[in-house]
Design a binder for these strands. Structure first.
Lengths: 168, 168
DNA sequence: TTGTCTGCAAACACTTTGCACTTTT
DNA sequence: AAAAGTGCAAAGTGTTTGCAGACAA
């Protein structure tokens, strides 16, 4: 879910819908708009939770009847969407997890090692610290990733704490 | 290399050498001190850079003549060392990278996507922010990981910037 | 038509595991 | 002697790739 409750398509921040922006991206690269790519962007744009390739593949198979796209196509399209700036990719517990990037405010995450859920939070200070540190090391920072891992309220109260392998 | 220049074995902070601590850990778990485990801890304790399983395996084969330990044993021992609190594990570009944990101050990293080197830095503020955020979400923070990726001085000046796949 | 895309199966990198044999305790 | 550890080969994961046929432009 967007962090900014006022977020909506068509605002100044987001001139194009994700699908439009992806189409634009493909066009400028001489790539084609296929029914698979269209189905994938549309599906992803409609949901706002974090997901991984396998989940997406399964979702496509159930919500849209029949085989919408094969596994390789899903992987290929996901990385195109990352290149297009629509999605953000991060690696948790050995698999890639994606979240919306386009039109969404920058944020970091709390990661529950019990239920493996990601909780978003924003902190302007984090960015400041990163900039300061980078500067003091003559390092050109391009991005940062901050993940605080631990247990969320639910997993703390209920006892169903799965074992927590920190692969973060 | 340790962040604290005054670090040395035998101080209050570090009562046991890594090898001793590992032996202690094994003993209390009914595990055995084999020549493979001894060779691995000794080797790791002697070097202070970040490394991955494959590098360690190769190092063991070259520096100590002959096959000191097989791949499975290296992997098994590394995860025991993590459990023992001697090593810290993080995943970068799809493979696990280890660094010393025992007796070392907490720190975060700058990650150069050019040469894939990790540069350490400490910031008390980061920990504060994590605590504050966790508290405001009723989340029990156990650890955090902050990685600032970008290009280090060397990779910025020399043009040999390898392509930077952000798998962080 | 032309060149890109797809899906399949196979290959991948990294890591883990089953099992017979060896070693520590 | 008993229990745990080792190495080998094989199996796993999640992801990528070569290629022939399918399809968008």
């Amino acid at each position: 879910m967007p962090l900014d409750p006022d977020f909506s398509l068509g605002t100044v921040a987001v001139a194009l819908s994700p699908a439009e922006r992806f189409a634009e991206f493909l066009r400028t690269r001489g790539k084609r708009i296929t029914k698979q790519r269209r189905a994938i962007v549309d599906h992803v744009a409609g949901r706002h939770e974090h997901f991984d390739a396998e989940q997406l593949l399964a979702d496509l198979r159930t919500t849209r009847a029949g085989a919408v796209a094969s596994r390789p196509t899903v992987y290929r399209t996901l990385s195109e969407m990352v290149d297009a700036g629509l999605l953000n990719k991060m690696v948790l517990d050995g698999r890639a997890v994606y979240e919306h990037d386009y039109g969404y405010p920058r944020h970091d995450h709390l990661y529950c090692s019990g239920c493996r859920r990601l909780i978003e939070f924003s902190s302007a200070e984090v960015a400041k610290i990163c900039d300061a540190v980078a500067a003091s090391h003559q390092f050109r920072a391009r991005s940062h990733r901050l993940i605080v891992s631990g247990l969320c309220v639910d997993c703390r109260t209920s006892k169903r704490r799965t074992r927590h392998q920190d692969r973060v």
